[in-house]
Simulated assay, not measured.
Amino acid sequence: MSKRRRILKASTITMAHGAGGKAMRDLIEDVFVGTFDNEDLNKLEDQARFDLSALQALGGQLAFTTDSYVVDPVEFPGGDIGTLAINGTVNDLAVSGAIPKYLSCGMILEEGLEVDLLRRIVRSMRKAADEAGVLIVTGDTKVVPRGKGDKIFINTTGIGVIPEGIKISAANCKPGDKIIVNGFVGDHGAAILNARGDLALEVELKTDCQPLHELVQAMLVVCPELHAMRDASRGGVATVLNEFAEASEVAIRLEEASIPVRNEVRGVCEILGLDALYFANEGKLVAVVPGDQAETVLQVMLSHPAGQHSAIIGEVIEGYAGRVLVKTGFGGERIMDMLVGEQLPRIC
Score class of each variant (00 low, 15 high):
18 G>E: 05
94 A>L: 05
85 A>C: 03
20 G>C: 15
72 D>Y: 02
17 H>W: 01
78 G>A: 12
110 E>M: 02
75 E>K: 07
47 Q>K: 13
94 A>T: 13
53 S>A: 15
71 V>H: 04
21 G>I: 03
84 L>K: 00
26 D>I: 05
44 L>K: 12
90 V>G: 04
84 L>D: 01
109 L>G: 00
51 D>A: 14
104 S>D: 07
14 T>E: 00
72 D>I: 11
23 A>D: 15
35 T>C: 11
98 A>Y: 08
23 A>I: 00
91 N>S: 11
25 R>E: 14
96 S>F: 02
36 F>K: 00
47 Q>F: 15
14 T>G: 08
71 V>A: 08
99 I>C: 02
88 G>D: 01
60 G>A: 05
99 I>D: 13
112 G>Q: 14
103 L>E: 05
58 L>E: 09
99 I>E: 14
104 S>N: 13
104 S>R: 03
13 I>K: 00
49 R>H: 11
14 T>I: 01
24 M>S: 12
37 D>S: 11
84 L>P: 00
97 G>K: 13
102 Y>A: 02
54 A>C: 06
37 D>H: 08
28 I>H: 00
55 L>V: 04
15 M>Q: 14
58 L>W: 02
63 A>L: 04
74 V>N: 11
60 G>S: 15
75 E>S: 10
100 P>T: 02
